[in-house]
Design a protein around this nucleic acid. Sequence first.
DNA 1: ACCAAGCAGATACTAAAT
DNA 2: ATTTAGTATCTGCTTGGT
Length: 622
Amino acid sequence: MDHHISDGENADIDWNTDDELEIQNIGPTSCTTLVTRDAQAIISNGENIGPTSCTTSVSMDAQAIISNGEASSSAGSSNSNLVQHFLGMGFSERLVIQAIKENVEGDTESILETLLTHSALDNSPEEHNSCDLSYHQQEQCVNNDELSSDYDESLLEELSESDSWSWSDSETENGDSLLKHEKPISDLISMGFTVEEALSAMERCGPDASIAELTDMIYAAQMAKADTVFFEEEKPKNSCGLTAKQKRKLYALEARKKKKQKGPLTEEEEVIRLPNPMIGYGIPSESSVTPPHRELAAAAIGPPYFYYENVALTPKGVWDTISRFLYDVQPEFVDSKYFCAAARKRGYVHNLPIHNRFPILPLPPRTIHDAIPLTKRWWPEWDTRVKLNCLQTVYASAKLTDRIRKALEKCGDYPSLEVQKYVMDQCRKWNLVWVGKNKVAPLEPDEVEMLLGFPQNHTRGGGISRTDRYKSLGNSFQVDTVAYHLSVLKDLYPNGINVLSLFSGIGGAEVALHRLKIPLKNVVSVEISEANRDIVRSWWEQTRQTGNLVHLSDVRQLDGGQLEEFIKSFGGFDLIVGGSPCNNLTGSNRVSRDGLEGEHSSLFFHYFDILNMVKDIMKVKN
DNA sequence: ACCAAGCAGATACTAAAT
DNA sequence: ATTTAGTATCTGCTTGGT
């Protein structure tokens, strides 16, 4: 669900509002926020280049270079600002320092140019994200970084083939790595690759990479380079000028490197396939079918229970990665068309029991006609749809429905097969329903609320615009589906549960638990959109909840210290639920479908991180 | 090889509100 | 004058069928 990504998202991280007041105890483990207002302004103008708009800090390294006056002839403090400026834009520290050095006399513009050129090839999310991650991963990243750069520098020194790709700014003495890696380098060169290509690939793939992996990386880099060279002028500078496919390729290779996997990308590695029919471990109407027995790895078993959700149709390999991170639990893929009148293909990774589930009652209408009965009268018999397609965040324009009306009016009572096909294609694409003679219309927000299982007017009023209402709803859970899975908690926690809800959105999980009549004792809800937090808060009040609701705004600022406080104060979380942003995964996105390492979808790693921290803290406690 | 169908979207723009 | 809401148009990868 539910992490609300909108044009206003960055505005939500607003330094002047009261938002920050909602966050208490930002402990020492959280990243120091050093993004300047300048950098923030650039990010909110949509001109940010890096894969994340992460808050970031300047390391000792950078500080040292600045104070030594190595980087530039100008004063240290202004350089420090400059470094922070570019770090805030998401470039890695190493690149920033390098670029500033290369542009000793240069202005901000030329430094940015250098960064753009370099980052197209050196677009390593591990570096961009390093401060985005909590301390566990941060540690890991720092180590990796040190390893790879040591090794890289030694090679460059020896081969003295330095161009803009060399980072010769610090001394190194690691001689034997050369011997160890001479062979692949010379192999690659004899294969016709340039020295820089070989070195760059070696750096990215790590010291033990196979030739196949290295060539894979070089081809990816060549694609990237070709793209930036030839299309720099025509294309808007959108995330380093790479196409989504190229970025994904680079990201995937980076991710593999991070996990120290060997060998070329093979088909067998991506084994998760979508089931047909997509009914997971079962749906209410087939409750007679007993679900299979499933064994969870020891690390996966609760407490706490966890429930993670995202779109089913992702780029290849994404669910394999998600599953690998979440203790190798296989995702349960379910299409909500088996629960309501609209399709919603989603994957759920959870460690909940899968027997003795029950649906919330009354069962929602399962067909379009039952869900929106007024459309029945105008529904032509050649429109054979029974279910709506996936409810999305965007809806058809008036102009489109007007074109459809005009096309139909020209035909009289019996439209030709061509017109029928045109109308049907558009209706399926935009989820249109019949509201009059020859008149189709997009769903109203309250119809979407109903289809998704929310109470009527859940998202209405209180300052939210119609557009944002569609957006918030489109990013949400289907309540009946999720409730069916969570229903097993009712017997386990008759006195209520403590929930950590990440990317809460408009509170799909909370509504599901409430409708299951599982008392909500303490809910810590993390949601970036203020409008969504308002919606959940007013739902909380309207439903006269007796428990405690704590709202935070950003998963990136939730640290171990805060979690420890929460766990101490109410004795641990029973359920950690959430669906991280899908917009870099879903097929609807043709612009930045970058995969799990994309700007927004990489927040998945925070779900994993936070789950891990909670598990650790609760382990110590017991 | 091909085609059809589907997808929690992004962006540039205008109109309206502040 | 600037921000926000609404509108129109843009786009590609994947799967499953033939």
